[in-house]
């Protein structure tokens, strides 16, 4: 089983801030991986490097066998890496349906109309299809943002805080829809998340970032229980050397 995405020795600094310090990660097909870490730990920087928005100071990103460092976001999207945004990036003056239609038409689907109808159903957006994207509730905007990213050619889907900005009781429902759609499309998912309940429930693997580096990587059970993760990521007070 060859990896979908491989990061090798990524470094990125903004002045004195280390946003990525020797990041090495491998992502296997059909997995759901969560990236966790406090604000500024380097999660979004990692997504931005993968999608070509930022260029690493050094290191390689392999998508399949291909090194994609130096590619533009547009070229990388065309290869099959798509992303959603922490703040949904939509076409506010178009309807929900038209937003999807633009996405599917750009993806050069054979039948954009049919693909759009399918996405509307899969993401439970059909009741909002005719409404302007700028006027629908935030939870719907989040779903639409993911639905647009997950076009028919996506192989790898990056989600930047898919549940931020929506109420606690909506989060699980949104993630159910998103992960369900991704599995159905057989797409590898990497998502950044702050809500540990969501992480534990949906991720098959968790990678914890701290200060530009990786401090834990493994199954949710192991990673979420690790002491340094509880201290630096979850923010629990852990008494020193109690024994």
């Amino acid at each position: 089983m060859s990896a979908v995405l491989t990061a090798q020795g990524l470094h990125k600094s903004f002045g004195a801030v280390r946003a990525a310090a020797d990041i090495n990660l491998t992502f296997d097909p059909d997995t759901v991986v969560s990236l966790i870490g406090a604000n500024g730990a380097g999660k979004t920087t990692f997504l931005n490097i993968v999608t070509g928005y930022l260029r690493p100071d050094s290191g390689h990103i392999l998508f399949g066998e291909r090194d994609i460092v130096g590619f533009s976001p547009r070229q990388i999207t065309k290869l099959g890496i798509s992303r959603s945004f922490q703040i949904p990036q939509l076409f506010n003056s178009l309807s929900v349906r038209e937003n999807l239609l633009v996405a599917e038409s750009i993806a050069a689907t054979d039948d954009p109309q049919a693909a759009t109808d399918e996405a509307l159903t899969r993401f439970e957006l059909a009741p909002y299809a005719a409404q302007k994207a700028g006027l629908v509730p935030e939870g719907i905007r989040k779903l639409l943002d993911v639905a647009m990213a997950l076009s028919s050619r996506s192989k790898l889907l990056l989600l930047d805080e898919p549940t931020s900005g929506v109420s606690a009781d909506e989060k699980v429902a949104i993630m159910d829809v998103v992960i369900g759609a991704a599995r159905a499309a057989r797409v590898t998912v990497i998502f950044v998340e702050h809500d540990m309940d969501i992480v534990a429930r949906f991720a098959g693997r968790v990678v914890a970032f701290y200060d530009g580096g990786i401090i834990a990587d493994g199954s949710p059970d192991t990673v979420l229980r690790a002491e340094n993760v509880r201290r630096y990521v979850i923010g629990e007070e852990i008494p020193h050397a109690a024994a």
Binding site: R74, S82, Q89, L90, S93, I106, A107, M148
Partner: peptide
Amino acid sequence: GHWGRLATGVRDNELRVSYLGAS
């Protein structure tokens, strides 16, 4: 058609247009 919607998309949000793979 698609071109009209894409043009509106460029007006609304160029970042999204790029991240959908269009210029």
